[in-house]
């Protein structure tokens, strides 16, 4: 089952490698990983999308929590949550027809064209991973995807729940 693990950790050198290390040395899956400092610069927040049965997920959260640099770990997918991912995708727009089709789909998906070149558009799209998958699929039907880059999922719990030190 797909799970979203959110980790609050010290923004210290080596912290990230320790977390990644836990996943590789214990054979857990990483589907995506997203990390950056929080509003408090001494902390980093990391969101890992992984999959496994309940036992594996329990072990992942416990093993990550065990790391000295880690303050809090939560499984966002345990409850209601908001999750978003951003994708930048560069598509070929070699004819007016394609340009129009791309533009139409960009509007439908509420994406944005952030760069325009003679033969391509660079598009920014945010949403759930499913939405990004769907957008990429739609694009690939009308034109050629030259390259794409995704941030991986980040998320927060809905309501009053919060991951704070």
């Amino acid at each position: 089952m797909r799970r979203i693990i959110s980790v609050l950790m010290e923004n210290a050198p080596g912290s990230l490698s320790r977390i990644v290390g836990v996943f590789s040395q214990r054979g857990y899956n990483v589907d995506s990983l997203c990390v950056a400092p929080t509003d408090d610069k001494s902390l980093s927040r990391l969101t890992i999308v992984t999959h496994g049965d309940d036992k594996v997920i329990e072990q992942i959260t416990k093993q990550v929590n065990k790391l000295i640099d880690v303050l809090k770990v939560t499984d966002l997918s345990d409850g209601h949550h908001v999750e978003r991912e951003l994708m930048l995708v560069k598509v070929a727009t070699r004819s007016d027809l394609v340009r129009a089709e791309v533009k139409r789909n960009v509007d439908i998906f509420r994406a944005q064209i952030v760069d325009v070149d003679a033969n391509n558009y660079t598009i920014q799209v945010t949403g759930t991973s499913d939405k990004l998958d769907a957008f990429a699929h739609t694009m690939s039907q009308s034109t050629e995807i030259i390259e794409a880059s995704r941030t991986g999922v980040c998320g927060l719990a809905r309501g009053e729940k919060a991951l704070r030190p």
């Binding site: 050198p13 080596g14 490698s17 320790r18 290390g21 790391l67 000295i68």
Partner: peptide, 14 residues
Amino acid sequence: MVGCSRPIVKHSFL
């Protein structure tokens, strides 16, 4: 050394 020992230490400092 911090990297080499990472999977087998409780923690490490550089």
